[in-house]
Amino acid sequence: MSTNRVLIIDEMHLSIISLLESRGWLVDYRPDIGRSEILEILGAYVGMIIRSKTVIDRQLIEAGGALKFIGRAGAGLDQIDKEFLIERNISLFHAAEGNMDAVAEHAIGGLLAVLNKLSQADAEVRKGVWRREANRGVELQGKTVGIIGFGNMGSAFAKRLQGFDVQVLAYDKYKSGFGTSHVQEVSLNHVFEHADILSIHVPLTFETANFLDQSFFRQFHKPIFFINTARGELVSFDTLNWAFDQGILKGAVLDVLENEKFQTFTSEQQASFARLADRLQVVFSPHVAGWTVESYEKINQVLVQKISQEFNY
C-alpha cells in the first residue's frame, strides 16, 4: 500500500486529478465503481474523494483501515458518519466555499422568477397567450428577507441581496456576532414577525429533518415567499401544500425535494407532489443551485487546498 494513494469514487470535473497529482498524490479515478468493489479495495488507500454515490457508514469506514481523510466534493455531509470518522481519527473535508456563489445566484434568480411570474408568463407567451395583468409582478425592492442559517450559503445569498434595497434579517442557532451594516442578526421570532421572504440555508441533520413543519409556518405574521436551496428533507410536500392552502405561502423556489427520485415516490408523495406541481407560484429546479460550470471546478480547487494544508503535499 502506498502512503499517498487517493480513490475518487464519483464523477467529478477532471481537474481534480491534476490538482491532486501536482501535490504528490497518486490518484485512482473510478467514477463507475460500485459499493461492493469499494469495500474490497478501500484498504489500499489513505484518501477517498466522494460526492453522494454511497453512504459513508461504519461498514465502509472500517473497510478503509488506512484512511487518513475523506473529501466531500460539495457541501452536504448528511450521508457521512462523522462521529465514527472522529473516533477513527480520519479527517473530513468538504467544499461549501466552492459552490456558495452558485447557490446564492440561483436563489436570487429563482426569487426574481417567482416574484415576476416568469414561468407562467413564458409558458403562456409560447402558446400565443398575451395576458399582461395576470402576469403583473411584485418588486423585490423594499421587502424584508429572512435568512435562516448564516454559514457559507446564507452569507453568500445575503451578499447578493445588497443591490436590491432590501432589509436582510439573519438567524443562526449556532453563530452570533455576524451582523453587519447590511445584515441584521435577529432572533427566529423576529424573522417570523417581519419577513416577506424566507430563504433556508441549513444542513440536513437529525435536528433539521422536517424542521419546517406546520407549526413552523404558522408562526409567520404575514404571507411569505419561500426559497429552499438547502435540503428537501427539511420540509415535506404535504406541509408546502398546506402552507399554500392556508395562504401562508405566496410562492416558492424549490431546488430540492423531500424525495428527488421520482420513481421511488409513494402513492401519497405522488399525489402531494402533483398538487404542488400544479401551482403556478412554484419554481422548480433539479438540485442544481450549486451545480454551475464554474462551481464544478471551484469545488475541486477548494477541496484540494484543504487537503494539502493538512497533509503538507
Rank of each mutant, 00 (worst) to 15 (best):
residue 2 S to W: 02
residue 6 V to R: 04
residue 19 L to T: 04
residue 21 E to M: 07
residue 24 G to M: 13
residue 27 V to P: 05
residue 32 D to Q: 13
residue 37 E to L: 11
residue 37 E to V: 14
residue 40 E to I: 12
residue 42 L to Y: 08
residue 53 K to C: 08
residue 53 K to S: 14
residue 56 I to D: 06
residue 69 F to M: 02
residue 70 I to K: 13
residue 71 G to D: 07
residue 72 R to G: 08
residue 75 A to Q: 02
residue 77 L to P: 03
residue 78 D to V: 03
residue 80 I to K: 11
residue 83 E to T: 11
residue 85 L to C: 08
residue 89 N to G: 11
residue 94 H to W: 13
residue 95 A to N: 12
residue 97 E to A: 15
residue 98 G to W: 13
residue 99 N to E: 10
residue 99 N to K: 12
residue 106 H to C: 13
residue 129 V to G: 01
residue 132 R to N: 14
residue 136 R to Y: 14
residue 139 E to R: 11
residue 141 Q to G: 15
residue 150 F to L: 15
residue 150 F to E: 10
residue 152 N to T: 09
residue 154 G to K: 01
residue 154 G to I: 01
residue 161 L to G: 11
residue 165 D to H: 12
residue 167 Q to K: 15
residue 169 L to G: 00
residue 175 K to Y: 07
residue 175 K to C: 06
residue 175 K to Q: 13
residue 178 F to G: 10
residue 184 Q to A: 12
residue 185 E to G: 09
residue 187 S to P: 02
residue 197 I to D: 01
residue 198 L to M: 10
residue 204 L to S: 06
residue 206 F to E: 11
residue 206 F to R: 13
residue 213 D to T: 04
residue 216 F to L: 03
residue 221 H to G: 07
residue 222 K to F: 06
residue 225 F to Y: 14
residue 225 F to A: 00
residue 226 F to R: 05
residue 226 F to I: 07
residue 230 A to I: 03
residue 235 V to K: 00
residue 236 S to K: 02
residue 241 N to W: 04
residue 243 A to G: 09
residue 244 F to I: 04
residue 245 D to R: 07
residue 245 D to C: 00
residue 246 Q to D: 06
residue 249 L to H: 01
residue 249 L to A: 05
residue 250 K to I: 02
residue 251 G to W: 00
residue 252 A to C: 02
residue 255 D to P: 03
residue 260 E to I: 02
residue 262 F to W: 01
residue 262 F to C: 01
residue 263 Q to A: 12
residue 265 F to P: 02
residue 266 T to N: 03
residue 266 T to R: 05
residue 271 A to T: 05
residue 273 F to V: 01
residue 274 A to K: 10
residue 277 A to R: 08
residue 280 L to R: 08
residue 285 S to Y: 01
residue 285 S to I: 04
residue 292 T to H: 07
residue 293 V to A: 05
residue 293 V to P: 00
residue 296 Y to K: 12
residue 297 E to N: 05
residue 306 K to L: 07
residue 310 E to H: 05
residue 311 F to Y: 13
